[in-house]
């Protein structure tokens, strides 16, 4: 009885630890995402490339992240292709946004509009939304076999 009770306690505490760990990971990811967003907003609002110290100075004094944290965030954004890193001048690197804010938003909007077929149904696309059966019917009506003749030329 005592053994099964201790097993239950062990499993319960392990599950609790796992849940807590997951919550911490989610919170960490959210914080990381927020920090990335804030860094991008600072870069978008600047006409010139900024150093890490410049970016740090743009944060409120109460919520200023450490330089090392900012370097990690900038490196992650650079790998994602959202930030460009300039050459080091006097040992200081400058960073700028790879895409303008409107371009990034329009790309994201277009991706949601064109990648999901369910969403695409709400729009009337010039390319149409024809199924394979419709394409077969068109081919038969035009007396074609396989891919259309113009494509093969």
């Amino acid at each position: 009885m005592r053994s099964s009770c201790s097993q239950f306690t062990a499993v319960f505490s392990a599950s609790l630890t796992l849940n807590l760990q997951m919550e911490v990971n989610v919170a960490e990811r959210r914080m990381r995402g927020e920090l990335e967003g804030m860094v991008m907003r600072i870069l978008w609002s600047s006409k010139e490339p900024l150093s890490v110290r410049d970016i740090q100075a743009d944060f409120d004094s109460e919520s200023q992240p450490a330089v090392t944290t900012l370097l990690t965030v900038l490196e992650r954004l650079r790998i994602k292709g959202q930030v460009k890193r300039g050459d080091a001048v006097a040992g200081i690197r400058h960073y700028s946004a790879a895409q303008t804010e409107p371009k990034l938003i329009s790309d994201a909007m277009l991706a949601t509009l064109t990648e999901s077929s369910v969403r695409a149904e709400a729009l009337l696309n010039f390319a149409g939304n024809l199924s394979d059966d419709d394409v077969d019917l068109l081919r038969r009506a035009l007396g074609k076999r396989g891919r259309s003749a113009s494509d093969q030329n």
């Binding site: 804010e101 409107p102 371009k103 938003i105 329009s106 790309d107 909007m109 277009l110 509009l113 064109t114 709400a122 729009l123 009337l124 696309n125 010039f126 390319a127």
Partner: peptide
């Protein structure tokens, strides 16, 4: 998308046509 990427709007045959700055072959009616 229209807010951030429109560079020209026209009225053709009484309908609003918005041209958006997007480098992809896209044309649709909403």
């Amino acid at each position: 998308l229209l807010d951030v990427a429109t560079y020209q709007t026209l009225a053709v045959s009484g309908t609003k046509v918005a041209f958006v700055d997007v480098q992809a072959p896209i044309a649709f009616a909403a």
